[in-house]
């Protein structure tokens, strides 16, 4: 297996892998989506009754959204996660009660009229734990409305709930091979205008491939060419793999964790089969 053209920057990753198979790429894709842990808000405690500000003005703890809907929206907010610092609650030394190695606490205190943003979530402790994206609107409050919330985040995996899914848009495409027969091509430009990704351009009276990796094998150019000058094939051993993260983990960390997870799963299988064979 060989990796070319590796671009892993910030939250985005893209690389071309040759000498692989569909099953291998799919294993990587599934681990990236379902197995990487990250922090997300799991329990939310709402303050009920009236809330007073420092001037003695009283606010009702209501809002236009139902509490469960707001709790759901809070869960979806990405929280920066350093995987070396946190443990799953079940595996934590505190026995699942909640301690700084398995839980992050947040408070949210806002008085209307205002828009409540994800950036208003204040972590108890390190300010680095505040949500990556501070501009997600969570709810809106009118005059005399206020909310006071305590939320706890814990580790989870994408297979349990979408709020714990680290990567999205993760997938692979077969690497395209486009052949233009110079003898048959008459420079009719039909192929270039049919291509939705602008892969083909007509230069000096002949069709030429100008942006090969953008091709998604849709075959629109093959159908458009009346002379049958274009053939397209996907290489089943070479893939373009790409994914992005929601910001809770960097793409590099997600990819390294995914590969490490695949390795440890298979070595565990290897060990248990080894024991049975003895």
């Amino acid at each position: 297996m060989k990796i070319e053209d590796m671009k892993v920057e910030g939250n985005n990753a893209r690389f071309v892998m040759s000498g692989a198979s569909v099953t291998f790429m799919n294993a990587l894709r599934r681990v990236l989506m379902a197995e990487i842990p990250k922090m997300a808000i799991e329990t939310v405690e709402f303050h009920m009754g009236s809330i007073s500000d420092e001037n003695g003005k009283s606010f009702e703890s209501t809002g236009p959204l139902f509490d469960e809907m707001l709790a759901h929206r809070l869960g979806l907010v990405p929280i920066p996660t350093d995987l070396s610092l946190y443990k799953f609650r079940k595996e934590c030394a505190c026995g699942g009660e909640g301690c700084p190695t398995c839980t992050i606490m947040f408070s949210l205190n806002k008085k209307g009229p205002c828009v409540v943003y994800s950036g208003d979530l204040e972590p108890l402790g390190d300010s680095k734990l505040s949500p990556v994206d501070k501009l997600i609107p969570l709810t809106k409050l009118t005059e005399d409305e206020a909310i006071l919330i305590y939320a706890t985040a814990q580790l989870g995996r994408g297979r349990d709930h979408a709020k714990w899914q680290v990567t999205h848009g993760s997938g692979y495409r077969l690497y395209p091979t486009i052949k233009v027969s110079k003898a048959k091509c008459e420079g009719a430009k039909d192929c270039a205008s049919a291509c939705p990704k602008k892969v083909i351009a007509v230069k000096e009276g002949k069709a030429q491939v100008v942006n090969l990796e953008a091709c998604n094998l849709c075959m629109a150019c093959v159908e458009a060419c009346e002379k049958g000058a274009i053939t397209i094939e996907g290489d089943e051993t070479k893939f373009i793999f790409q994914f992005e993260t929601d910001g809770s983990l960097a793409a590099k960390d997600a990819l390294l964790y995914a590969l490490g997870h695949l390795e440890s799963e298979f070595s565990a299988l290897h060990d248990s089969i080894g024991e049975m064979m003895e």
């Binding site: 959204l65 979806l76 990405p78 994206d133 997600i136 609107p137 979408a162 999205h168 848009g169 992005e244």
Partner: peptide, 21 residues
């Protein structure tokens, strides 16, 4: 009612883009 936090299909955070859009 209020803009969803994430894309229904892929899960990308889109809520923060709506006000700028």
């Amino acid at each position: 009612m209020i803009v969803p936090v994430r894309c229904f299909t892929c899960g990308k955070v889109i809520g923060s883009s709506f006000e700028e859009y």
